[in-house]
Amino acid sequence: MSSSSSPRGFALSSRLVHWVMAVLILAMLGLGLFIAHSSTVHYVTLLHLHLITGVSLLVLVIVRLLNRFVVPTPELPADLTTPMRLGATGAHLALYGLMIAQPLVGWAMLSAGGYPITLGGSVTLPPIVPHNPALWANLRQIHTILAYAFIAVILLHIVAALFHGLIRRDHVLSSMVSGK
């Protein structure tokens, strides 16, 4: 049973930002993998879409963190075993970490590579680290490693969510789907 101070489901604002970001992040992972593993005449357009969406996700995760501290979130079911509880908390922390780190690494790596980061027209993002080729090579590799870690944690997260909804049949899945 959840305590009286915490709601049973996620607030509309929390659900909205969760699902919008979920769709965008899945799209970004697929898009990133595709552009890094194919030669296409659309490369420049697709990479530009990747940058714009990546930077939008950075803005969204800030909104999400603010929302998270302002709007109360439901507690996990009381009968959850300690390992499951730790797993859920750990996975959520990892997801937050990756949502913050991945776009920052993307921005930093292009800065280190000396690439101008043009959002559109004459709007350009400033570099966040100095031009440094060795750092560029490292950050580019970290962007790949984080992407694979992101995929792994998301897959676990989805298995866990569906496990709650279909096997345990508790309120966890519905708390994020319908808010009930």
């Binding site: 899945l26 992972l29 697929g30 993998l33 995929i151 897959l155």
Partner: peptide, 10 residues
């Protein structure tokens, strides 16, 4: 989903 990612990665 994993298969979709694997496809994207070629």
């Amino acid at each position: 989903l994993a298969a979709g990612f694997a496809w994207a990665a070629g």
